[in-house]
Nucleic acid binder design. Structure first.
Lengths: 232, 232
DNA sequence: GAGTGGTCTAGACCACGTT
DNA sequence: ACGTGGTCTAGACCACTCG
C-alpha cells in the first residue's frame, strides 16, 4: 500500500472509465481540483494525467481541460517475423538466386524509383523439418558498399539485409497481408500437391526520410503460418 | 525555434540513437549531467527522458542510470475492422441464423466454459456491391439481459455485440490470421466458382478479468481483403 | 558515502478558452 | 478577469547500486 500518489490517480480514473462512470467526451476534474482531492501538488497530478494520456484514456485541450478519449476499437499489435510465427519456425533456408534486374513498372512505382535504376532481387526458400514452407522474394535498392555475399544473405531477415548500412532505429516498415491461390510455379517450389491456400505477406521498408529501401514478398503455405494480433 | 527544452533533449538523444552515435546498451548521461548540459532543472530533463522511455528508445535502472533500448523490430500496428479493410468495405449484411447451441469440445475449450453452458451462434454474410465477400460466425456466451434482437445483431460489429452490457474500454481482444482453402459449403455461400483462397480472421474477446466473452470467425474472399500493418 | 533514478513540493510565468 | 493546461524552477527525501 505504498503506491505513489500518481498511480492512485491513474487507477482511480482508469477504473471510472472502464466501468462506465466516465464516458467518452466527459470532462475530467481540473488539475487544481485533483490537487485538492488527492491533497498533492500539481506536478504529481500532471504525472498521473500524463500516463493516462499515453495510455489513450484521456486527452487535454489547453485552456479547456481534460476529457475522456473514445477508445480505438480496431487497433491491434502484431509481431511479424518471417522466420518465426505462432505455429511454425524456419529451421533452414535455401538461397535460390540473386539477380540484378531492371524493375518492371509496378515494382519501380512501388519503390518510387525510375525504371533504369537497378534493383537486387533475392529469392529464397524457407524450410521446416525438411519441408519447404515459404517462398520469399526481396527487392532491394542497390546502395554502394552493400555486401552481396551469399552466405550473409542466406540466413538474414529483411531488416537485417537493409540495416548493414543504416541504423535499425530509423526504419519504418509496412506490412500487407492477404490470401492467394498459388500459381503452378509456386506450387512446385513449395511442394504443394493438392489444394492449399497461401498467406502472402508483403513487407516494405522505408528509411527515416520515408524513402522506400526495399520490398519483400513472402508466400507462406497456409498450413504453416498463423499471425496473432493483440489489442491495447 | 520556441520549442520547449525537453523537446530539444528528446530530439537530440533520439537522433543520436537513430544515426548510430548511441547503440543499444549504451548508457545515457545522468540526469544531473543533462541538467548541466542543457542548463535546466531536473524535472525538465526527466520529462524529456520519460518521453524517450515511452517511445521505447531508452530504459532506466534505479541507482544505475539510463540505457539505450534495443529496438523491437517485429512489432506492427494493424487496424482490423471486419466491415472495412484496405481494399474493400461492407455495404450490406444478411443475417443467416441465430442459434442457441451446446458448444462442441473445441469451442468449449476455446471459450473456457463447460460443455453444458449454452452458447449463442450468429451466422452472417457480408456483401459489397451485391456480392458476398465474407462469411461470419460469432459465438457469444449468453448473459442475462443480452438482447437477441435480429435487427440489432444484423449490422453490429463484434465488439458492439458484446459491449451492450460492459464498457468498451476494459475489453481485451485477440486476432488470429491465416489462409485457408474454402470448404464446399463456404464456396456456395460466398458464390465462389473457381479456385479462390480465404483469409480467415478469428477474433476473441475477453473481459477485463481475462475471461473469454466470445469468439468470431470471419472467412473473407481472398480477393476482397488486404490487411495493413505499420511499424512503431 | 557518493552517485543514481523515483517521488514530491510550492511556487512561478505563459498561452489559451470562456464569460 | 479568471480558470485552464503547458512549461519550468530549485529545492527536498527516499531507495537503490557500486566501490
Amino acid at each position: 500500500m505504498k503506491n505513489p500518489v500518481y498511480i492512485k490517480i491513474v487507477e482511480d480514473i482508469r477504473n471510472k472509465v472502464n466501468n462506465g462512470d466516465l464516458n467518452p467526451g466527459d470532462d475530467i476534474p481540473s488539475e487544481t481540483a485533483l490537487c485538492k482531492e488527492y491533497d498533492t501538488s500539481r506536478m504529481t497530478v500532471r504525472k498521473g494525467l500524463a500516463i493516462l494520456m499515453n495510455e489513450g484514456y484521456i486527452y487535454s485541450i489547453p485552456g479547456k481541460g481534460y476529457f475522456v478519449e473514445k477508445p480505438d476499437f480496431n487497433k491491434y499489435t502484431i509481431y511479424y517475423d518471417e522466420m518465426n510465427n505462432l505455429i511454425n519456425n524456419v529451421d533452414n533456408t535455401k538461397l535460390l538466386a540473386v539477380d540484378i534486374i531492371m524493375p518492371p513498372e509496378d515494382l519501380a512505382g512501388n519503390l518510387q524509383i525510375s525504371k533504369n535504376k537497378k534493383v537486387i532481387m533475392i529469392r529464397r526458400l524457407f524450410y521446416t523439418d525438411g519441408e519447404p514452407m515459404a517462398y520469399d522474394i526481396k527487392y532491394l535498392l542497390y546502395e554502394k558498399g552493400m555486401p552481396i555475399v551469399e552466405n550473409e544473405i542466406e540466413q538474414a531477415t529483411f531488416p537485417e539485409m537493409v540495416s548493414r548500412n543504416t541504423s535499425l532505429y530509423g526504419l519504418k516498415k509496412e506490412l500487407l497481408i492477404y490470401a492467394k491461390v498459388p500459381e503452378e510455379k509456386t506450387k512446385k517450389l513449395l511442394n504443394i500437391k493438392g489444394d492449399l491456400a497461401l498467406l502472402v505477406v508483403e513487407q516494405k521498408l522505408y528509411d527515416s526520410k520515408n524513402k522506400p529501401m526495399g520490398l519483400g514478398i513472402t508466400y507462406f503455405r497456409g498450413d504453416y503460418i498463423k499471425l496473432q494480433g493483440i489489442s491495447q
